[in-house]
Amino acid sequence: MAYTITGQCISCNLCVSVCPNGAIQEVEGRHIIDSERCTNCADSIYTVPQCKAVCPTANGCVEQLSDYWENWFATYNRVMAKLTNKQDYWERWYNTYSQKLSEQLKKQQVVA
């Protein structure tokens, strides 16, 4: 399974210089990975794909999913992870807010 360059690429050219197979090229101002030449660095001395390892955006170079359902579940899991994180955020916010509010109400009751 080859890798692909996403829209989050900042064109830093780090991936071009580290690719052991020379699979990354710049075409019309955009970087592309030749899927025929990309081997995920499996036949090299590296344990991880070098394009992903050096990418400063962490999402500029991602694994290209070829199967429709594999892509669907990857998207679903990514969206669910974001929703779960937001749910935790709002739950923590509500708990903090309600605690502060109850403290203020107790102070007002003592004064009155």
Rank of each mutant, 00 (worst) to 15 (best):
N21K: 15
T75R: 12
E28M: 14
K106H: 05
C51I: 01
C61T: 05
C9R: 01
V62P: 03
Q99Y: 07
C41F: 04
E36A: 11
S44D: 08
L101E: 12
C12K: 01
S98T: 08
Y97V: 02
D34P: 07
E63N: 06
Y46F: 15
A42P: 04
M1W: 02
M1P: 10
V62L: 15
V54K: 03
G22N: 04
T96W: 08
I24F: 01
Q109H: 09
V54W: 01
M80G: 02
W69R: 12
V16K: 05
Q8H: 13
I32V: 13
Y46T: 04
S35E: 15
R92H: 06
E63W: 08
L65C: 00
R92W: 03
N95L: 08
T75A: 13
G7T: 07
T6L: 07
N59K: 09
R37A: 10
C15N: 03
G7Q: 10
F73T: 14
Q104A: 07
A74N: 14
S11V: 06
Q104V: 07
I5E: 02
E91K: 11
R92K: 14
D67W: 04
Q8W: 10
N85W: 06
Y3K: 06
E36Y: 09
S11C: 11
Y89F: 13
C38D: 02
I24K: 00
C51H: 02
K82H: 10
Q108Y: 09
A81G: 04
S44V: 02
Q8I: 04
Q108F: 06
Q8C: 07
S44H: 08
R92L: 08
A2G: 05
V54Y: 00
Q25E: 14
V62R: 09
S35Q: 12
C61Y: 01
C38P: 04
K106D: 13
T6K: 02
Y89A: 06
Q99R: 10
E26K: 13
A81T: 08
Q99S: 11
